[in-house]
Simulated scan of single mutants.
Amino acid sequence: MAGRFAPRPTRTTVRGGHAVVPAGVPRPAGPGPGRVRTWAPDGPLDLGLVLGPLRRGPADPTFSATPDGSVWRACRTPEGPGTLRVSAYGGGVRGEAWGAGAGWLLERLPELLGAADDPDAFAPRHRLVAAARHRRPGLRLTRTGLVLESLIPSILEQKVTTGEAYRAWRLLVRTYGEPAPGPMAGRMWVMPAPRTWALIPSWEWHRAGVDDKRASTILRAVRVAARLEEAVGMEPADAQARLEVVPGIGPWTSAETVQRSHGAPDAVTVGDLHLPGIVGWALAGDRHADDAVMLSLLEPYAGQRHRAARLILLSGRVPARRAPRMPRTDIGRL
């Protein structure tokens, strides 16, 4: 994460969503050129900021930022697996895609890069938020149009450390997913299909460090995967309500999902261990703020509370740690 301060690597600062994209010169992807689309945004665009929230750890098998300045995503689209490469191109962006889902990915490239977002609707009310926004004019909220690919890793992140959740995601996708179509085959993977998730043996969840509660929640979700994916066509609040019908999915998980699937600017995360204290400290000097205090402080940003919280996270303005880190428990070794 870029910024004046050096934030500690908590899950919330990671959710600030700044993936480091090298400032290289994009080069051809190699043999087997994919389908191509170019698009010119109507304002500044920072690929690392826009697509960063989709990365689940530095070794995420579905996401890669390469030295030539490209960002790669391996996705399971409604039309099948696909790989998307995005890079700066002249005054715009170049998207190249492979696989059965290539057409779907290119059709939605502008929304993925924030075309449906309206940064100008945001009016900073605090000096820190205004400064964070000024330093990052290329911040837009991504809209993937895919629910399960954000829901499942969000479930894995429930009440565990970031490292544990990222490890589980990495192991399960590499073991049960399929190689990404195109030139990144063998280096990137597409996440498993819903039926494949449903067939993962209990001992493999355990080996990946996923407890029965989180595994059961994922299994319940993939059984109604089609109904959950339909939520993409709903307003974010209605989509959250549909997700929360599934036992084990609460406001924290549903907000984390629609922030990515819908590009929801007001879907502020509640129930988080760190976020209320970070927002409270940044806006009022209150490191002990709870959800109620956080929501009160974000009230001036109604309609844009997620964007405000994200700018606060990107500012790096976090209270000094006074308690031990959350303990890691590898149930796969118990």
Rank of each mutant, 00 (worst) to 15 (best):
H18M: 10
G24V: 01
R27G: 11
G48M: 06
P53E: 09
T66I: 14
G69L: 05
S70D: 03
W72M: 08
C75G: 10
P78Q: 14
G82Y: 05
T83P: 14
V86H: 07
Y89K: 07
L109Q: 14
P110C: 03
A115V: 15
P124V: 08
R125I: 08
R135I: 00
R135Y: 15
R140S: 12
V147W: 01
L151A: 02
L151Q: 03
L151R: 01
I152V: 15
Q158V: 06
Q158I: 05
T162Q: 09
E164S: 13
E164Y: 09
L171E: 10
R174T: 08
T175W: 03
A180F: 07
G182P: 07
R187I: 04
W189N: 00
V190Y: 04
V190I: 00
M191W: 07
P194A: 02
T196D: 12
H206E: 09
R214F: 00
A215K: 12
T217Q: 06
L219F: 15
A225P: 02
A226R: 14
A226P: 00
L228A: 02
R242V: 12
T257Q: 09
A267F: 00
I278Q: 03
G280T: 11
L283W: 10
A289C: 03
D290K: 01
L297G: 08
R310T: 01
A320P: 02
A323L: 11
R325P: 04
R333K: 11
